[in-house]
């Protein structure tokens, strides 16, 4: 009965959606939106604070936002406050994992149901470095190419996960991750506060934005992305460690 009710409710909601959006003059067909009369048009042109003309890769200098990657310019510059919020979402999730799964006292690894051999251990160490460096590359080039702090941080964490899976003795220093997580998060807020002090507004860019497309460009964006990468990497690694360890009763 309960399942039938849920089914009817779901169908009802679907029908409501179709009927209220179909032939709704306000709701545009897919692909019909004219970007010119949306506020996002000015994000694309980097012209929120006055018209800056065409943005040319490798030539435009000192634009209001120096990121060549449009997604980054929105995520870490125009809507950086939301990103600070998302970082906090991950932070509190990892706090929650630590609260629920963390054990005081001695801890040991959960046993794997196979014995990792020598080749697996050595091979994964070699891969670890490559994945880690790819993660660092993705983070550092977040303002130029697709990627950035979140995927890069996840890559770093995946390299740690590889070590955990390939070696049943392996443990990282969780305390170190905690310090890194705390410092990176605090520095993000402090970058924001520096914007308030050195410029006028919270999270405002207070460094020169350089030439669009250069590695050293876009002001505080790469710095923020490095902090996000470190924070995401250390948080997810910490979560992995909590999931793969248990209290040692012996």
């Amino acid at each position: 009965m309960k399942k039938l009710f849920a089914f009817v409710l779901t169908i009802g909601l679907g029908v409501l959606m179709i009927f209220s959006l179909r032939a709704n003059t306000l709701f545009p067909e897919f692909g019909d939106v004219s970007i010119a009369d949306r506020i996002s048009a000015l994000f694309l042109d980097k012209s929120v604070n006055g018209d800056n003309g065409d943005v040319v890769f490798g030539q435009t200098t000192d634009a209001e936002d120096g990121a060549a990657n449009l997604v980054t310019s929105i995520v870490v510059d125009y809507r950086s406050f939301d990103t600070l919020g998302e970082v906090t979402v991950l932070f509190i999730s990892s706090l929650g994992v630590a609260l629920l799964l963390g054990v005081a006292g001695k801890q040991k690894r959960l046993a794997l149901n196979f014995k990792p051999n020598f080749m697996l251990r050595v091979g994964s160490r070699a891969l670890f470095g490559i994945i880690l460096m790819t993660g660092v590359y993705v983070i550092l080039h977040g303002h130029l190419t697709p990627g950035g702090g979140f995927p890069g941080g996840a890559m770093i964490a995946s390299s740690i996960l590889l070590l955990y899976l390939a070696d049943d003795e392996f443990r990282t220093k969780v305390k170190g991750f905690k310090v890194l997580e705390s410092v990176a998060g605090s520095l993000y807020v402090i970058v924001g506060l520096l914007g308030l002090v050195l410029a006028t507004y919270f999270l405002q860019n207070f460094l020169p934005t350089g030439t669009v497309g250069d590695l050293f460009s876009a002001g505080v964006l790469p710095i923020v992305y490095v902090l996000i990468g470190l924070k995401v990497g250390s948080e997810i690694s910490g979560i992995i460690d909590h999931f793969l360890t248990e209290g040692d009763l012996a």
């Binding site: 406050f81 939301d82 507004y201």
Partner: peptide, 10 residues
Amino acid sequence: IGGFQPPFGI
């Protein structure tokens, strides 16, 4: 926030 006057930014 961020130096972008509303409705831009947050």
